[in-house]
Design a protein around this nucleic acid. Sequence first.
DNA 1: TAAAGTACTTTATTTTATAAACCTAATATT
DNA 2: AATATTAGGTTTATAAAATAAAGTACTTTA
Lengths: 94, 94
Amino acid sequence: MRKELDPLLHSALRLKIVSVLVSLEEADFLFLQEQTGSTSGNLSVQLDKLASAGYIEVEKTFQGKKPRTLCRMTSKGIEAFRQYADALKAYLNV
Amino acid sequence: MRKELDPLLHSALRLKIVSVLVSLEEADFLFLQEQTGSTSGNLSVQLDKLASAGYIEVEKTFQGKKPRTLCRMTSKGIEAFRQYADALKAYLNV
DNA sequence: TAAAGTACTTTATTTTATAAACCTAATATT
DNA sequence: AATATTAGGTTTATAAAATAAAGTACTTTA
């Protein structure tokens, strides 16, 4: 039978975020906003969810005097993404 | 940039339904319920949404005295699924 | 003939996603 | 030097979606 799809990853915006992050070491808030085309509010909320699940880590730094939020995948997140991708392929018969 | 994911297909249950239907000529309500593991209520709602969008067609027949609901993909639905699968692959880098 | 079962549909509740409003600090403007 | 504007977010409110519970219209079985 088809595997269940991790609901945390099976969401349009969170999937975008994670698919950007897996191919990069790290990305900041503004870059993610640009890549995903989301509003900052929605992005903030979804980053929180990913962070609470331990899929990404979020580091708040300053660049000069401006705040800068850096995000990167954790190994847990990478593994979850891998499994999600595998499960999905069964649905798409890739 | 990544393509948008059709929200009608990007839902756990509707994706299950469609992924079953694309590989079959047709399937009835009970078979879909068994394959997807969903409740009948949820299945009924999601079939309605797919039908309203013109992605599937639903035929209500009788088998002897029992109602029997048959579902099959439309060409519109097949095309939508194809595009959805393509878009997704870009996210997964398949 | 009353109780239980089949095959659903409808309505209500919960969860999730999105958008709008707000906040704080820094820089620019008059 | 006060005031407005921008940057980089967060919080709260609204809208949409998913799910579960209850209901309907029969039919079968005891």
